[in-house]
Amino acid sequence: MDLIVQFSNVHKFFDGHEALKNINLAFNKGETTVILGPSGSGKSTLLRCINLLETPERGTLAIGDIIVDLSKPISKKERLAIRQNTAMVFQSFNLFPHMKVLQNVMEGPVTVLKEERAAAMEKGKRLLTKVGLSHKMDSYPSQLSGGQQQRVAIARALAMEPKFLLFDEPTSALDPELEGEVLKVLKDLSEEGKSMIIVTHNLSFAKEVADRILFLENGEVLFDGETKKFFDNKENDRIQSFIQSMQFI
């Protein structure tokens, strides 16, 4: 498998607190990785370091042939190059409220990728159809339900044709009835072979969709391996108690 995202000896500090401790990881193309771990363990931080929304202080980050030495100041060009390879879906959707749904999806292709408006519009409509929202393309985000907004956000991310899709708790702000519609879209994408990294607290979803599980605690990777091995784990007490504690939610 081609290697795409690689962390080497990455450290991230927040005011002296070490949120990521010497991370060495590779994320592969076509894989769906789910990141699990208790609150505050550094899941979001790890995900946000991939597209440099957070900038680690030490280590190297490589995406494809872009290699960034994090201990040096990162140029705007490097930052943009890294970001062109990834797209992020947020817990709070973060759609642009002043743009209609279709404009939201077209914004990246037109403004960043400099695609023709007509082509971007075609693509936008196709992606909205894919997430089941073509009938909402002329609505404003405020007129949509949370689940619909998150599906638009997924279409917006897909429109950038990123090598990697990043999801930070994409369903945590949603009612259970709305969660399903978003998880279904994620599952479809995973089955298409998209490269995805998903932070979630939904264990049954992780079990069903993930090719690989990362388990974080205190800024360290405690488990990195196949999904089945994670859930069948008998040796690691910490992981077992985590899985148990999640089962009563």
Partner: peptide, 13 residues
């Protein structure tokens, strides 16, 4: 909201 900046920046703007 800070998320507006983050969403736009993560698109590569």
């Amino acid at each position: 909201p800070k998320g507006q900046w983050e969403a736009a920046e993560s698109l590569g703007m």
